[in-house]
Design a protein around this nucleic acid. Sequence first.
DNA 1: GTGAAGCTTTACTGACAAGTAAAGAAATTC
DNA 2: GAATTTCTTTACTTGTCAGTAAAGCTTCAC
Lengths: 226, 226
Amino acid sequence: MTGSRRQQNRLNRERAILDAALKVFAAQGYTGASMDAVAAEAGVTKPTLYSYFPSKESLFQAMMLGKRDVMLDVFEHPSGDMVADLLVFAWAYADTVMRPEMLSLARLIIGEVQRFPEIGRAYQASGPDHLLRGIMRYLDSQRRAGRLAFDDAELAAQDLWGLILSAPRTQALYMPDALPDRATLHRYITNGLRVFLKAYSTAPAPDLHQLEALASAPSQQVRHDA
Amino acid sequence: MTGSRRQQNRLNRERAILDAALKVFAAQGYTGASMDAVAAEAGVTKPTLYSYFPSKESLFQAMMLGKRDVMLDVFEHPSGDMVADLLVFAWAYADTVMRPEMLSLARLIIGEVQRFPEIGRAYQASGPDHLLRGIMRYLDSQRRAGRLAFDDAELAAQDLWGLILSAPRTQALYMPDALPDRATLHRYITNGLRVFLKAYSTAPAPDLHQLEALASAPSQQVRHDA
DNA sequence: GTGAAGCTTTACTGACAAGTAAAGAAATTC
DNA sequence: GAATTTCTTTACTTGTCAGTAAAGCTTCAC
């Protein structure tokens, strides 16, 4: 029904190859990764690999462009409680972006962006920019509801981002072996939201108290595949 | 006086080699860069290169560890006007960290950190961490003077950092061809400081007016070599 | 079942890069 | 100013990797 058995095998193998490519490229970098290593990791031999992708470069591009992380549309279902929404978003975002594989992918993109500028642009558009637009829409809705006050939604969204996770993420990029634990993330998130609300909330101070109570909310695992 | 002519030549050449190594490694990555290319860029041949550094790896490490950017001690000479100090700092920091060579270096480190973890740690310690401690000292002095209020100086310093430059810098890492112009940086800096002061300043609002007046202060070029 | 098609594998090629040996040039010492 | 030492270069070796040609196997059609 879903194609012949041959085609099915082909698709499975293609996926296996792409997964292997991600693994090997992320570990070794573009130039450091050998096609033999990718083939071995995928359980395939090299000419088979070349029957799926005509060159190393095309494999890399296909893998990267297919990997655009579908950035959680957490704000699609707002709860009506802004602080709770922001906390859910913050944890979902942290759980996505601080995963070791995601950090490896980011390192790979950053490291190879001079060689493959399109990949950097594509990632920026489908990841950060997409996320930013989601935040902007949500913040705007809260502004219309009178709960937030700002002129420039883009700046406000970037502030939220920067306050919550820029520090631990930047650090994680430089030090893969010292990923922050959940208590540390909690500290960043709580503090970041407090500062954000202090700067942008129309309520004088009350909603800050929710933060401590809510901060230890369960952290949802979030899907992030292609 | 400063050693024999031979030794002098040797030092000059070593510096030329290190400069060339930075250039080539930053452009091609560790695996992508060839020792021939480094030698050519330095105006030397390969065996000469190997007489200075016994291997590609040792050259890379020597180059990177020597390159720790001496992060501006802007806060060493506070003016007494906190908003003016913060603006000077923000621009000095922006001028250092957003330079194309600095961004290339950061990309190189991030891209190779899985291969050379010590380099990531060394960079983190001499760059961001060193800077952070400087900011903390300054913010603490302002808190003692009653102009700022916060519990955790480290979080406050990271907030300042994150608000001012995390967005343009992150974006620049992914998109080397689309560096923000000075007007854009101005926008980030002004907004970041406004949010920071709103969250942390003890003054209700007055000092914010200075921002617009001062924001277009001349941007000092800052030295940043090893 | 048998023939034909396509896919996969073993085995190879050409190019390039890290690192080196021995010849050649330059500077310092007496 | 000549001998020696040190540094630099030309020319090479070894290994690795991207990409490929031809042989072998599996799957589907009839």
